[in-house]
């Protein structure tokens, strides 16, 4: 499914970023970082029109030749970014949505952990497990 999953803090630094090990990790970092441009654009566009009744799922942020980058933003402005291989065409929008929802739920669990200091990189095993479940190990 996904080749890279990232959680980005409100201040735009990565809380969690993991990519398929077989591929160039750096490239994903650049891709996810650049996608923040579109995330911000979308957030501000939505903020103008709809106020608080906004959809968390931002949809396809931008396609590249090799990847499709999807975005999701929580109410606290924490961003989730999922990068999917372009060749993986079987993935539907709904599946991406449900991936984000799962990710959000797991993230909420992480935040609920009293030993987790908000703003720190996420090191939760459970969260990692969820992410692993969403990523293709074969690449």
């Amino acid at each position: 499914m996904a080749v890279c999953i990232a959680v980005i803090a409100k201040e735009n630094y990565p809380l969690f970023i993991r990519s398929v090990p077989t591929q160039n990790e750096l490239k994903f970092h650049y891709t996810v970082h650049t996608s923040l441009d579109v995330v911000e654009e979308k957030i501000s566009a939505v903020g103008k029109s709809l106020g608080d009744q906004r959809e968390l799922y931002l949809g396809l942020l931008y396609p590249t030749e090799d990847y499709k980058v999807y975005g999701y933003v929580t109410n606290s402005k924490v961003k989730f970014v999922i990068v999917v291989d372009s060749s993986n065409t079987s993935l539907r929008d709904n599946e991406i949505r449900s991936m984000f929802r799962k990710l959000h739920n797991s993230f909420t669990d992480v935040m609920c952990n009293p030993f987790y200091n908000p703003g720190d990189p996420i090191q939760s095993k459970a969260f990692n497990g969820i992410v692993s479940g969403m990523m293709v190990q074969t690449g």
Partner: peptide
């Protein structure tokens, strides 16, 4: 920009 936003891998690169 990478430093200010705390992206360590791009920073290193």
């Amino acid at each position: 920009s990478y430093v200010s936003e705390g992206w360590s891998l791009p920073v290193t690169h």
